[in-house]
Design a protein around this nucleic acid. Structure first.
Length: 539
RNA sequence: GCCCUGGUAGCUCAGAUGGAUAGAGCAGAGGACUUCUAAGCCUAAGGUCGCUGGUUCGAGUCCAGCCCAGGGCACCA
């Protein structure tokens, strides 16, 4: 529909002025119409004519059965209003399936075992999962991947904590008593403040690298407890994971690749192997240390190969991490580009900002982080106060929405009270706006009829519903779930206005309005489910 | 010093390819209700879009410089 109209405008410009223009219709403010274009402004400038005159000429040439009226407004905008039938057609369109047949890898979350999952991980998981849903809606087969640091100093700190703090193997399933994250905090604090502890932890670190039998038992248990915890949190959030990779797996592959390409891609410098990023406008980074150990960049390089080996047919690979890794990823991808250009071109790194609590910042240095689990509990409590007995997945909806409504990239301040608030731009608002509509549908005994001879309030709602497919399409193209959230909020607002002014049940227009409410509720539900937010029938 | 993010109302944030009076929510002010869920709706108030230049018929959006905040800059991850 939109494309047909765009072509109609293009044809008119060609006929009238022999001008070649590309027209993309925009969605103007509702008072102006359903679609708008500024071609006349552009052409006026090109042809040295008054934009309004150009617009008027085009206006008289625009003939299409979907067009009810065309108006010239402002400096020379062409505003197109659709017929009711055309508006219904637009609203019935399904989002494009343009990723059908593609296999896309998405890595996100990436919490480290032996540490607690904090709210930054939560953000990554929620936004990553939403991006996966978007890609799936567009027809892609998505593999949800994660990557975890199973070696390194943090492991040694945690093991030291387990030794000192009384980790109890016999009570392995007691997640409170055996919270590895807390043992990590204990170790991390001691490492900073206690010379003796620091020495012991450094020794443990060597033992971890050497896979020494003396710590192997605690290591294995710590890994298990950690992944049990992750699993529990992810289940609560309703987030799936298809495959988890470990740093220890990617290290060897990465080392091999770097060694093979030393002299070509990488150079030796001060006994370390580095990639000279300056040649592509970046900075130099070490890939293999002087001691022959792989750095993070080498492990990540290895990971790209692991993924390629496991998913040889993947067409794209997306990695989502925090902003602080943006620069480092550029260097890693620049190196990859020299080794495997095709793979590098398929890979895209997205970053999200730092999450802080409105009640105070978290400190990751000492390990005193605000845990994902704590946030879930806090939200649960806050909602329980406001609405006792509401199901747990509704609360998860509040958390998900609070994260996903932000545009990816910038920092985010999480306000627990606001996220569970019953007012304003929140998950519960949207859920409520859905439940209200379902309530009408459930109570009415009438049958939904065709949408015709629409009244202004009805038309506004239908117009908004019609923006759904194009919103999904741009969200897919730009990998921005926030577009969906913003749209759904506007949709719900439009419905709430409709609801105030237009009675459905018992009204002379009940049949038409039932059809409208039905479409609205289905659209809102589809959008919420796209963000993995439940759309309850009643609240 | 160099590089990356960001800077929009008191607070938290939207603002696609440059376009019509810069939009929401929260907080604060006022209002409507014998009605399908008031977790809602309506009205007003609140802005030098960090600053200064530039490009353009037109800049929150593009370019340059500067200011501020956060992050990153070789053997940690």
């Amino acid at each position: 529909m939109r494309q047909e109209l765009e072509q109609t405008v293009v044809a008119a410009c060609k006929d009238l002025f022999d001008a070649r223009v590309t027209v993309s219709l925009t969605r103007p403010d509702e008072q102006f119409g359903d679609y708008a274009t500024n071609v006349a402004l552009q052409l006026g400038n090109q042809l040295d004519k008054k934009p309004r005159e150009v617009a008027e000429a085009i206006e008289s040439k625009l003939n299409h059965p979907a067009i009810q009226s065309v108006a010239v407004a402002g400096p020379g905008f062409l505003n197109i209003t659709l017929t009711d039938e055309a508006l219904v057609k637009v609203a019935e369109k399904q989002p494009a399936n343009n990723l059908k047949g593609q296999e896309i890898l998405v890595e996100f979350g990436d919490p480290n075992p032996f540490k607690s999952m904090h709210i930054g991980h939560l953000y990554s998981y929620i936004v990553g999962d939403a991006i996966c849903s978007l890609l799936e809606t567009a027809g892609a087969t998505v593999r949800r991947l994660s990557y975890h640091g199973d070696v390194g100093l943090h492991v040694a700190k945690a093991i030291w904590g387990m030794q000192q703090g009384g980790y109890d193997s016999a009570a392995a399933n007691d997640s409170k008593k055996n919270d590895v994250g807390l043992f990590y905090v204990q170790g991390a604090k001691a490492y900073e403040s206690n010379e003796n502890a620091k020495k012991q932890i450094d020794e443990i670190n060597q033992l971890v690298y050497a896979k020494d039998a003396s710590i192997q038992g605690l290591y294995t248990e710590g890994m298990e407890r950690s992944f049990d915890n992750f699993k529990e949190t992810l289940e609560t959030l309703g987030i799936k994971n298809d495959k988890s990779y470990l740093e220890s797996e990617s290290a060897e592959l990465g080392l091999e690749t770097v060694r093979q390409n030393t002299g070509k891609v990488f150079t030796e410098s001060d006994s370390a192997i580095v990639y000279e990023g300056e040649k592509v406008g970046l900075h130099t980074r070490v890939f293999i240390t002087g001691k022959g150990l792989p750095t993070y960049e080498t492990k990540d390089l290895g990971l790209t190969e692991l993924k390629k080996r496991d998913y040889p047919n993947a067409t794209r690979s997306i990695i989502i991490t925090a902003n602080e890794q943006a620069e480092y990823f550029k260097v890693m991808l620049a190196a990859l580009k020299e080794i495997d250009p095709e793979l590098a071109d398929k890979t895209k790194h997205l970053t999200h900002g730092f999450v802080s609590l409105s009640s105070g910042k978290m400190s990751s240095r000492t390990g005193d982080v605000y845990n994902a689990a704590t946030l879930i509990e806090d939200v649960h409590e806050a909602m329980e106060k406001l609405h006792p007995g509401s199901p747990k997945d509704h609360k998860i909806g509040a958390i998900r929405y609070a994260f996903v409504k932000h545009r990816l990239g910038g920092d985010l301040v999480y306000d627990v009270d606001e996220s569970v608030s019953l007012e304003g731009n929140s998950g519960p608002y949207l859920q409520y706006a859905h439940a209200r509509a379902r309530s009408i549908l459930n109570k009415s005994t009438g049958q939904a009829g065709t949408l015709e001879k629409l009244q202004p309030g009805e038309r506004s709602l239908l117009r908004k519903i019609g923006e759904y497919p194009e919103t999904v399409e741009s969200a897919v193209a730009e990998l921005l779930p926030s577009y969906i959230a913003t749209y759904l909020y506007e949709l719900a607002q439009t419905f709430n206005r409709f609801y105030e002014n237009n009675r459905v049940i018992g009204d002379a227009r009940e049949v038409v309005r039932l059809g409208l409410v039905q479409r609205y509720a289905d659209t809102l539900k589809a959008g919420l489910e796209l963000l993995n937010i439940p759309a309850p029938e009643r609240m």
